[in-house]
């Protein structure tokens, strides 16, 4: 290189480096309420091994997590619990809505089931399927990694942009 860096020294933007660290050490919070949770467990197990993408450290305390994976249908009575856990997670944090139930309510078009968690809390990646295969969940984690690399900042407030504050009104 023209600047003549010594051997073993890499020049990059600090922003890029921090995002690279973050995206390769996601700590998921498994919010598994239904059969999607079984596929989530399979994703963490040896055959599919999500450790290959740095997201194997499932933590059951929201204080230690930065990736919420909502796996399964969420009912009215559970939504305040989900929101409370989401608020307890430290920034920066991301959310994957796994399966059609979490994303849209799925076949449960009833008075009690929330018709998509994105009406009441933010979601980054939606995974279709009923339930999705582990490969689909891994793909969503890869997509999320791309998003983190693209949007990440050092301030930990990636989403301060007011255009991103409002949930889609037409859906509510």
């Amino acid at each position: 290189m023209a600047v003549g860096l010594p051997r073993g020294v890499l020049a990059t933007r600090l922003d890029e480096l921090v995002s690279w660290c973050r995206k390769n050490s996601l700590w998921p919070m498994p919010f598994a309420t239904a059969c999607c949770g079984i596929e989530l467990m399979a994703t963490g197990a040896s055959r599919h091994d999500v450790a290959r993408f740095g997201a194997e450290v499932f933590r059951f305390s929201p204080r230690q997590c930065d990736l919420m994976i909502v796996a399964g249908r969420v009912v009215m009575k559970m939504m305040p619990v989900l929101q409370r856990i989401w608020l307890q997670m430290p920034e920066p944090k991301w959310c994957i809505s796994m399966g059609v139930c979490a994303s849209t309510g799925g076949v449960f078009d009833t008075y009690s089931v929330v018709q998509g968690i994105d009406r009441f809390m933010p979601v980054d990646v939606y995974v279709p399927g009923c339930p999705p295969r582990p490969e689909q969940l891994i793909q969503s984690i890869i997509d999320l990694q791309e998003k983190i690399q693209r949007e990440g900042t050092l301030r930990g407030r990636e989403f301060d942009d007011p255009r991103r504050q409002e949930p889609p009104r037409a859906l509510r």
Binding site: M76, Y111, F120, P122, Q165, E166, P167
Partner: peptide
């Protein structure tokens, strides 16, 4: 599909 009870839940925004 109910009478809109679940739509009265609070909405949490990014940030």
């Amino acid at each position: 599909s109910g009478r809109g009870e679940r739509h009265n839940l609070p909405v949490i925004r990014r940030g």
